[in-house]
Design a protein around this nucleic acid. Structure first.
Lengths: 244, 244
DNA sequence: AGAAAACTTTGATGCAAATCAAATCAGGAC
DNA sequence: GTCCTGATTTGATTTGCATCAAAGTTTTCT
């Protein structure tokens, strides 16, 4: 029953009645403006687990709004070292790395079957000249990414293994909660190795930190399933000073 | 002879005859458009060494184009740990971290007496709705920052001390060269500690790596002065695989 | 100029995370 | 169901960088 194409033509695409609208689109538009916004989404595209939505070096054409599924973005150095630069979930926009050089600088790989809205960047630019709200939104999304990466730099430059993992778990669960999911339970979509790559750690170190948290009664772990039993303890590990 | 105000009113501000134009502004405008661009630069502002151009938490109003001088940007965690997120020089644009929340997320401190062009962001947004070339330029600048930070994540997550320092020196000298300066000699504007913060290392480790490069005849170091004697050796350290 | 403060270098030691290794576990193919 | 593959955990050991310490150098202040 799977379509042979990875695009879903014929499927009605409309931001105006998308339940993720407030996550990925600006608010405060009238009906006419909403309709124009809808037209920015050229089509949808399915990406199967393990497949790349785009790859480093490919020509940049579009930004992508994640409708369902979970992605990782990663850069690869010339000598083959992989660095996961982020994990993205429904409602988040990816692809902005490609704007500067018209070629993608990183790859986006689906960690579970996913569906994205394809938004040609030239259309976004055209429409955002008409709609200041959209223009501002595009700027905010890119600024948000810059700020997020600043935070990761702090993580990688200054924090110890357990602090990094605590920050990672708190961030994930906070974003999932914003999507109506539990703020204490989650199923990891990525391997220990991918977590390690993101956090600048080896997979064994990630595994040990999980075990440590589990022994200390802070979390319950069963493979990819994680339940946060003591969020305050996690926050304290992430940012010890706050509690002194 | 220093003005008491840190703005230089009365001074003719014009991108159109600024020698940094091709670094910080888009190209390909006609005279009429150039004039409009000139008007985006509200005024200039001097920042003395050690002073902040903006600080984390302050209300965001403007982007800044560096005319002269050298800056560091840094974030500080709640418990006081500082992470230098970048070093910026003439022709580069800073302040984009503030767009997402209307408040700056990091601080920009002058490492030497500096002068910047103040560009109110609302004016940039207004004009970039008129001038697609400017719009595209703003997008590229933000995308470039995202890509740069991806590279720093690779550095922090995957590389060893000497690789980090090699990458740092090569990057600095490449940017200075693009500004007409030597591609082999430079004077560092930052302390070992600031380099260390940027690279996720302690100042002693940075100092040792400098000494090691010096012993190996790759560079000549005298305090802040650095001369690159063997750029290929540096590149090889940064990216060993390329040479196998 | 002289004193103080800040920055840098170098050495000795300790430790957190990497590496190496092996056993266990989960999930998919057939 | 069983086999096979990839993911995870845990232990033993190593190592690169941090930390601690002290001396030397440069800059700033008075």
């Amino acid at each position: 029953m799977q379509p042979t194409l990875n695009t879903l033509e014929g499927l009605k695409v409309a931001c105006s009645n998308c339940n993720l609208r407030e996550l990925c689109m600006p608010t405060g538009f009238n009906q006419d403006e909403m309709q124009k916004l809808d037209e920015v989404v050229e089509k949808r595209r399915r990406v199967k687990q393990g497949e790349a939505l785009f790859s480093s070096g490919e020509t940049f054409t579009s930004l992508y709004a994640i409708r369902t599924g979970f992605f990782k973005t990663c850069v690869i150095s010339e000598d083959g070292r992989e660095q996961v630069t982020g994990f993205q979930m429904a409602g988040e926009i990816i692809g902005m790395d490609g704007i500067v050089s018209d070629h993608h600088n990183c790859s986006a790989v689906a960690l579970e079957d996913a569906e994205v809205c394809v938004m040609p960047f030239s259309d976004i630019e055209n429409l955002s000249r008409e709609l200041p709200g959209l223009q501002r939104h595009v700027h905010k999304i890119m600024s948000r990414e810059i700020v997020r990466e600043n935070g990761v730099m702090m993580l990688l430059g200054n924090m110890r293994a357990e602090e990094r993992l605590a920050a990672f778990l708190l961030n994930l669960v906070q974003r999932l909660h914003a999507r109506g999911l539990s703020q204490s339970e989650l199923v990891l979509r990525m391997t220990r190795e991918e977590i390690g790559s993101y956090l600048g750690l080896k997979l064994e170190t990630v595994s040990r930190a999980f075990s440590k948290f589990s022994e200390d009664g802070i979390i319950e772990v069963k493979q990819r399933y994680v339940k946060i039993l003591a969020p305050d303890a996690l926050k304290k590990i992430f940012n010890p000073q706050t509690y002194y």
